[in-house]
Design a protein around this nucleic acid. Structure first.
Length: 597
RNA sequence: GGUCUGGUAGCUCAGCUGGAUAGAGCAACGCCCUUCUAAGGCGAAGGUCAAGGGUUCGAAUCCCUUCCGGAUCACCA
């Protein structure tokens, strides 16, 4: 039982005994004591004053006296206004630290054999352009959430649905066919995904030029958009693709292979991975079958032009297209097929989609459609809806060339990490390989932390002109603290100091040290909450708080030069435990921490 | 227009299941390396928590109204 539960129970007893007020332990308001007051935990007294019929101060005093008498954990208390501040005995903290220090995997719940299965879909790229900053947020969130859920005892399958087919893919294929002159990644030296993305942009430009010309020749914009030769050719290509035209299929396979080779590099650099990859080209037929079944069931309707629609007006939504008039499938069709196949492939207890909030409507509809189709899990899908990454000028737009490319961004971060460490001369006596490893860790750490420390539900701003910081509330700051602790621990080992265990739990320690232990004890709760809330930001902010406190301790106290051997040992144990939590926590964010930097 | 969502320091963000004097970082200013890594620490400065009303012993937090932003409502994905 943890400290707060114990205290809440005692407070409930106190209130019942003194004022005959029945209140469940969970209802007791217990919070961390503000720093400016004496004590570690605070009971809010206001809810009891009605029953006590006394002033908040007096009520607090009475409850405090009861607690001190009936629980030996409480060494002293004070009452300020309606707040009862409790001081917990130092030996409790020291013993707790000792337990944590000697336990493996503190805060982590390893999944058991019969644990429930959570499937988490993230990344989900289109194969017509390279990944940009928006995808980076998606990938980092998806990966981190998967790690966090594992640490909360879930079995997790990380999955990726690759949007490898569709009209957008045909656009880059068509442009390459028309204007590519046989260009390949090898011939151009371009990374495969970037090469294909180039032709997607070329298509768009040529398409716009056609429209402009047609408008000049008297057509309305709407007519021009529908009848421009390029768009008609792309639509024909999609039809040919669905009809298994060998030439189109061959081109498609070739260009997608280029893209996958490029994505592999990006994913590897980013440090994300998947247990199972689905491709839309392999699931969309299942979707079509389901839609047709829906038509037979009478829940979807086919119009005279052949297109198929779901009428969701009864659910307060609109009509939704499921199959085009030419019979080709759309995004929704594919998602229906993919969802069904996943439940066939795995015994899923919870399905989570990590997809931006611009698709809230899509997932609302998907859930309803699956439910209508008779899948009992349809309504239980979780759309983990995160906010967009915006530039100071607003949304990123690929056509206006304002997207921040994922590969470029990661490279830039690593380079500035290299520059900083050269300036500081910190890695002068490391091997080239070590430098490379550390510089990559730090550069990516800065990027990942920058993105993950923000509440995922909120949109966030990224200013490309101001490079991501390495000081203050940043990944490198945390990594640096870890490296600094490790350095001290290495020296302690060299000196043969034993800090495997605390030999004295009756030591007198400072408030700062005491508070650090208290923070350490909060880690499991933070891991649990971040899992429940799907928020890596909670872990990021917690680690930052811990590290900030530790740095103050590190500055104000000496460790290795402390003359009291037991105190020195305590500080080493405290430091090692802190380092271990930093490492575990950062790993839940997908961020590695170096031994030196 | 309908629906959803957001507005906290110059900037980027915490705090939001109601609790004490609203916190960090960056930027700008001033200090601290003969001492375990200064990517660090300390100090000072910076606020009408968009505005107004309501509920409450207590509101940045809950409710209503207004203002301002964003997303979405495609035979795009």
């Amino acid at each position: 039982m943890n400290l707060e539960t114990i205290l809440a129970t005692v407070v409930a007893d106190a209130v019942k005994t003194i004022y005959s007020l029945e209140i469940a332990a969970e209802q007791i308001q217990l919070q961390k004591t503000k720093k400016e007051f004496e004590g570690e935990l605070t009971v809010v007294i206001f809810p009891f004053v009605k029953a006590s019929r006394k002033s908040p101060e007096q009520t607090g005093q009475e409850i405090g006296e009861y607690l001190q008498k009936n629980n030996q954990l409480i060494s002293s208390f004070n009452v300020i206004r309606g707040f009862l501040n409790l001081s917990i005995s130092k030996s409790y903290w020291l013993e707790t630290l000792n337990t944590i220090h000697t336990s493996k995997q503190f805060g982590i719940t390893t999944p058991t054999a019969d644990a429930e299965l959570m499937m988490i879909e993230y990344s989900s790229p289109n194969t017509n352009k390279p990944l940009h900053l928006g995808h980076v947020r998606n990938n980092l969130l998806g990966h981190s959430i998967a790690e966090i859920q594992k640490a909360n005892g879930w079995k997790v399958i990380k999955t990726n649905i690759v949007n490898d087919r569709g009209i957008h893919i045909c656009k880059s294929m068509l442009a390459w066919k028309l204007f590519g002159n046989g260009e390949t990644p090898e011939s151009s030296g371009l990374k495969g995904d970037h090469l294909v993305g180039k032709y997607y942009v070329i298509f768009d430009k040529a398409f716009k030029a056609e429209i402009k010309e047609m408008i000049e020749n008297g057509l309305s914009e709407e007519e021009a958009k529908k009848s421009a030769p390029l768009i008609l050719a792309a639509q024909q290509m999609l039809l040919d693709w669905e009809n298994n035209d060998p030439e189109v299929r061959h081109l498609w396979e070739t260009m997608n292979a280029w893209v996958y080779a490029g994505f592999d590099v990006t994913y590897k650099q980013m440090g994300v991975d998947f247990d199972k990859i689905y491709y839309e080209s392999e699931t969309y037929l299942e979707g079509k079958t389901e839609v047709e079944r829906g038509v037979d069931m009478g829940i979807f309707n086919q119009r005279t032009d052949g297109s198929v629609w779901a009428d969701l007006t009864a659910d307060g939504l609109d009509e939704k297209l499921l199959l085009r008039a030419d019979g080709t499938s759309v995004y929704m069709t594919q998602d229906i097929g993919t969802a069904k196949l996943r439940y066939v492939d795995y015994p899923i207890n919870k399905m989570v989609y990590v997809v931006g909030n611009e698709q809230n409507y899509h997932f609302q509809v998907l859930s309803i459609l699956l439910d209508k189709l008779g899948f009992e899990w349809g309504k239980s899908l979780v759309h983990f809806s995160y906010g967009m990454v915006e530039l100071p000028e607003g949304k990123m737009k690929s056509r206006e060339g304002t997207v921040v490319d994922a590969d470029d961004l990661m490279d830039e971060m690593i380079e500035s990490a290299r520059e900083t460490s050269q300036e500081l001369g910190k890695l002068d006596n490391c091997t080239a390989e070590e430098i490379e490893r550390i510089v990559r860790m730090v550069g990516l750490g800065a990027l990942k932390y920058f993105i993950l420390k923000v509440d995922p539900r909120k949109s966030m701003t990224f200013n490309p002109k101001e490079s991501i910081d390495f000081n203050g509330n940043t990944g490198p700051f945390i990594q640096y603290t870890h490296a600094r602790i490790k350095s001290v621990l290495r020296k302690a080992l060299e000196q043969g100091i034993d800090f495997t265990n605390l030999s004295d739990t009756q030591l007198t320690i400072s408030d700062k040290e005491n508070y650090l232990i208290q923070l350490i004890t909060e880690f499991p709760g933070v891991v649990r909450l971040s899992g429940e809330e799907f928020s890596p930001a909670l872990i990021a902010n917690y680690i930052y708080d811990l590290v900030k406190e530790y740095n103050q301790f590190y500055h104000d106290f000496t460790i290795l030069k402390e003359e009291n051997q037991n105190l020195k040992q305590f500080r080493l144990v405290l430091s090692e435990t802190t380092a271990s939590i930093i490492k575990t926590g950062m790993l839940l964010l997908g961020i590695e921490v170096p031994e030196r930097m």
